[in-house]
Amino acid sequence: MSTDAALDQPLYAHQSLRTAIGQLGMDDARDCAYADFVRERSHALLRSAFLLTGDQHLAEDLVQEALARTHRAWSRLEKPSNAEAYARKVMYHAQVSLWRRPKVAESLPGDDLERHGGSTDDPAEAAVRRITLQRALLSLSPKQRAVIVLRYFEDHTEVEAAQMLGVSVSTVKTQCGRALDRLRTLVPDLRVLADVHEAGR
């Protein structure tokens, strides 16, 4: 495969070829790997960060901080696949301990209708539901919110969530139970969640 041909291949094929032929120095290779990581994974990180912060700009700041610290640590990562786990751990720790709890969303239902991307047939109804959940999430403590996102958005087990947050499994269970209780109270559509927090994996 020629270099020109490689340029038509997916990004990872580029990277492999470039690395294999040794045309780039270690720093360049590292920068390329980091760039690939950011461009492939930052939106996934942003989605979690948005649930954690409830705000586009706060989410961007949170992910930016996590990415920057991942970049600082890049040479210590044993393999690039560790990068996302590292970034997520930084992000969750920063969210729980550093980022101030944002105020409950001040926008009213309907303000964000044009941004809605849900799957319902009724955009207005979906937007109201989304904003109701957003407000309910923001009424939780940062730790409770982090537990909910880890358990029910990222589908981590209680043990994994505890490791990610650096807390005990019992804390995850307790915080999750309280968070679900509150969500059930604030979000009518979620009342079917009766006792779901007891279904720990």
């Binding site: 989605r47 649930l51 989304r130 029910y152 679900l180 779901v196």
Partner: peptide
């Protein structure tokens, strides 16, 4: 126990807003 699909679905939908 009951799978909390409603919550998962709602969270995914909310995350789409970013």
């Amino acid at each position: 126990g009951p799978d909390p699909d409603p919550l998962r679905a709602e969270l995914r939908e909310l995350a789409d807003s970013v």
